[in-house]
Design a protein around this nucleic acid. Structure first.
Lengths: 111, 111
DNA sequence: GATCTATTTGGCTATATTGCCAAGCAGTTG
DNA sequence: CAACTGCTTGGCAATATAGCCAAATAGATC
């Protein structure tokens, strides 16, 4: 694997890593419904606010969310709504692995 | 977050985690071109064979790849080719974040 | 400007991941 | 069945991640 490919895959992994946590997936899923302030997200996630803040900064650093300050509150939103396609990808894998119904994209005729 | 949602997101994170490593992304990308034996993948990745074998077992456990033994060799293949959509998702995020060209799915009119 | 509120950051410990080496295992060949 | 090949597993040390508490910061209100 040459250096160019190497760093290309590292960059991709960096973004995927940001999504590789249940709380962060939950946050992204919630933000898909609209802008939320940190306190709202914290209540929904049910963890310490400092923990949630760190999750948000990880998502932000990956370029997945963006924030906006208004008064005392900080509102987060999806910066790249296409990130929601991740859920579809994952579901396809789940369904393809005995998740009951077949995934549309992976369904096969035979066997 | 209730228990049902919790375990749903944990399950999703488990699959995404399996993709959250440069070498594993590279392996998936390579397998998209066809079946490969462990020795071929090892040569391409350029790591110890035991390391590659562990990466493969992680992908297998996540239901992303499947294997087949033939003589002494073990051949791996994509079990859920839809996993390739991940690359599209990630690229969209990259492009949306100053990656030069705009991502088709995230492109916006204004600003 | 003191105080309050919403959030971020630092520090820490617990846990998970990574990657190498060495050892084990399963087929193959002589 | 001994020796070899291709791969997997166990063990370990280095590094990264997670989540809590406490302290710091930024803006609002009195």
């Amino acid at each position: 694997m040459n250096a160019r490919k190497q760093s290309q895959f590292e960059e991709r992994a960096r973004i995927i890593k940001a999504m590789a946590h249940p709380s962060r997936l939950f946050i992204v899923d919630e933000l898909a419904r609209g802008e939320r302030c940190v306190c709202e997200i914290t209540a929904l996630v049910g963890a310490d606010i400092s923990t949630v803040s760190k999750h948000l900064s990880i998502l932000k650093k990956a370029g997945i969310v963006a924030d906006r300050k208004e008064g005392l509150m900080v509102y987060y939103r999806l910066k790249t709504p296409c990130i929601m396609q991740f859920f579809g990808c994952v579901e396809s894998v789940q369904k393809a692995n005995g998740g009951g119904r077949r995934a549309a994209c992976c369904a096969r005729g035979g066997r």
